[in-house]
Computed example of a mutant assay.
Amino acid sequence: MTDSNLILRRMKVVDIPQVYALDVTSFSLPWPERSYRYEVEENEHSRPWVMEDTSATPARIVGMIVVWLILDEAHVATLAVHPDYRRRGIGQRLLANALLEAQKEGAKLSYLEVRKTNSGAQALYERFGFLVDGVRPRYYVDNGEDAILMSLRPLDPQALTALLNAGETIP
Rank of each mutant, 00 (worst) to 15 (best):
157 P>R: 08
75 H>S: 12
88 R>N: 06
110 S>R: 01
150 M>F: 12
61 I>Q: 11
52 E>Y: 12
91 G>N: 13
108 K>P: 00
126 E>W: 04
153 R>L: 14
110 S>Y: 00
145 E>M: 00
113 E>A: 04
110 S>E: 04
102 A>E: 01
134 G>P: 07
74 A>D: 05
110 S>W: 01
78 T>E: 04
48 P>D: 07
51 M>I: 14
93 R>E: 01
125 Y>H: 09
48 P>H: 10
41 E>V: 13
82 H>G: 11
83 P>S: 09
128 F>H: 01
97 N>T: 15
144 G>L: 03
115 R>W: 03
115 R>F: 02
101 E>G: 07
50 V>D: 11
154 P>E: 12
90 I>P: 00
55 S>V: 06
58 P>Q: 10
93 R>H: 06
64 M>K: 06
106 G>E: 07
101 E>A: 15
64 M>Q: 11
59 A>T: 09
83 P>Q: 03
145 E>K: 00
126 E>A: 13
52 E>N: 10
83 P>C: 07
70 I>E: 05
69 L>E: 13
89 G>L: 01
52 E>H: 12
143 N>I: 00
57 T>A: 15
159 A>W: 12
84 D>I: 04
65 I>G: 02
61 I>P: 03
134 G>W: 14
104 K>A: 14
74 A>I: 02
133 D>V: 08
89 G>S: 02
150 M>I: 10
68 W>I: 05
79 L>H: 04
52 E>M: 15
49 W>D: 08
47 R>N: 14
93 R>D: 04
42 E>I: 02
100 L>D: 07
55 S>I: 03
82 H>C: 11
80 A>R: 09
72 D>M: 05
157 P>Q: 11
119 S>W: 08
99 L>T: 11
44 E>F: 03
59 A>Q: 11
99 L>I: 13
134 G>H: 13
41 E>K: 14
61 I>L: 11
51 M>A: 15
154 P>V: 08
147 A>N: 01
44 E>S: 09
69 L>C: 09
121 A>W: 12
133 D>G: 12
85 Y>W: 15
152 L>T: 02
66 V>H: 13
99 L>Q: 11
59 A>F: 11
130 F>Q: 03
113 E>M: 05
85 Y>V: 09
97 N>W: 03
104 K>G: 06
159 A>Q: 14
131 L>C: 12
132 V>E: 14
58 P>S: 07
114 V>S: 02
121 A>V: 13
98 A>I: 01
139 Y>M: 01
